[in-house]
Computed example of a mutant assay.
Amino acid sequence: MSNIGGFFSNVVSEMRKVSWPKRKELTRYTVIVLTTVIFMAVFFAIVDTGISSLFRWFLSI
C-alpha cells in the first residue's frame, strides 16, 4: 500500500508543477483546434466526393 500512496503523492507533486493555460490562451487554442478540424473535415469531404464521382464516371464507361 505504501507504493500506491507514494505514487499518488508523486502525482500531486507533479501536478503542482504544471503550468496551466490562462483563459485567453485556452480560448485561442480551442478556436484554432476547432477551425483546423472543420477545415480538414471540409477538405476531406470535397476530396472524397471528387474521388467518388471519378470512380462512378470511370465505372460507367
Results as ranks from 00 to 15, higher is better:
Met1Asp: 09
Met1Arg: 14
Met1Lys: 12
Ser2Phe: 11
Asn3Pro: 00
Asn3Tyr: 13
Ile4Thr: 15
Gly5Cys: 15
Gly5Gln: 15
Gly6Phe: 09
Gly6Arg: 13
Phe8Ser: 02
Phe8Ile: 11
Ser9Leu: 08
Ser9Arg: 15
Ser9Asp: 02
Ser9Glu: 06
Asn10Asp: 11
Asn10Ala: 12
Val11Arg: 05
Val11Pro: 06
Val12Ser: 06
Val12Glu: 06
Ser13Leu: 12
Ser13Cys: 08
Ser13Ile: 13
Met15His: 01
Arg16Asn: 12
Lys17Gly: 00
Val18Thr: 03
Ser19Trp: 01
Ser19Thr: 11
Ser19Pro: 05
Trp20Arg: 13
Pro21Asp: 00
Pro21Asn: 00
Lys22Val: 05
Lys22Ala: 12
Lys22Gln: 10
Arg23Pro: 06
Lys24Val: 13
Lys24Asn: 09
Lys24Glu: 08
Leu26Tyr: 02
Leu26Cys: 04
Thr27Ser: 13
Thr27Met: 06
Thr27Glu: 04
Thr27Gly: 06
Arg28Phe: 07
Arg28Ile: 10
Arg28Leu: 08
Arg28Cys: 07
Tyr29Glu: 06
Tyr29Val: 08
Thr30Cys: 07
Thr30Ile: 10
Thr30Ser: 10
Val31Thr: 04
Ile32Pro: 00
Ile32Leu: 09
Ile32Val: 08
Val33Lys: 08
Val33Asn: 04
Leu34Gln: 00
Leu34Lys: 03
Leu34Ile: 04
Leu34Cys: 06
Thr35Cys: 06
Thr35Ile: 07
Val37Tyr: 01
Val37Ile: 03
Val37His: 00
Val37Asp: 00
Ile38Glu: 01
Ile38Cys: 03
Phe39Met: 09
Met40Thr: 12
Met40Ile: 14
Met40Ala: 09
Met40Lys: 10
Ala41Asn: 10
Ala41Trp: 02
Ala41Phe: 10
Val42Asp: 00
Val42Phe: 11
Phe44Glu: 04
Phe44Asp: 04
Ala45Tyr: 07
Ala45Leu: 13
Ile46Lys: 03
Ile46Leu: 04
Val47Ser: 01
Thr49Gly: 15
Thr49Ser: 13
Thr49Met: 14
Thr49Trp: 13
Gly50Thr: 14
Gly50Asn: 09
Gly50His: 09
Gly50Lys: 14
Ile51Gly: 03
Ile51Gln: 04
Ile51Pro: 03
Ile51Arg: 12
Ser52Cys: 07
Ser53Ile: 10
Ser53Phe: 12
Ser53Arg: 15
Leu54Glu: 02
Phe55Met: 09
Arg56Ile: 15
Arg56Asn: 11
Arg56Thr: 11
Trp57Arg: 02
Trp57Lys: 07
Trp57Ala: 05
Trp57Gly: 05
Phe58Lys: 09
Phe58Asp: 00
Ser60Leu: 09
Ile61Asn: 01
